[in-house]
């Protein structure tokens, strides 16, 4: 479970850089935001909520990967069949889009002014 940044969508605004509680996101002049420390990501989604372009997704994992730490290049193939989640945050709500392995999309809205029921 880690984030993955789609550099074709990144507009190099750097908003995600100054939010990560682990300070894990770097900046590349050509690519934009990059993250190659998947093993250090907490999965908090703070960066995703800052991204206005939905360029960052949280990728599910089977939790079986233990060792060795997978290099970023291999990451894509390692994750290719896992569900993913993107987030769009506005002033009043957060919209979460989950894409399941079969392509089905689930959209969940959480209103910022509304408490959890549980």
């Amino acid at each position: 479970m880690s984030i993955r940044i789609d550099n074709t969508k990144c507009i190099k605004c750097r908003a995600c850089l100054a939010i990560c509680p682990g300070d894990l996101i770097e900046f590349d002049e050509i690519l934009g935001a990059t993250m190659d420390k998947q093993q250090r990501c907490w999965g908090c989604t703070a960066c995703m909520k800052m991204c206005t372009k939905g360029a960052i997704e949280l990728v599910a994992t089977d939790y079986k990967v233990s060792s060795p730490i997978i290099e970023p290049d291999d990451n894509q193939t390692c994750h290719h069949r896992m569900s993913t989640m993107t987030t769009q945050a506005s002033d009043d709500k957060v919209t979460w889009t989950i894409t399941k392995t079969d392509g089905e999309k689930i959209i969940i809205e959480t209103l910022k002014s509304e408490s959890n029921q549980y």
């Binding site: 479970m1 880690s2 093993q39 907490w42 999965g43 939790y63 990967v65």
Partner: peptide
């Protein structure tokens, strides 16, 4: 969890 998921823990890994 280890390896790729080492920081998928309850308390902040930072």
């Amino acid at each position: 969890n280890q390896g790729q998921n080492a920081h998928k823990m309850w308390y902040s890994p930072f």
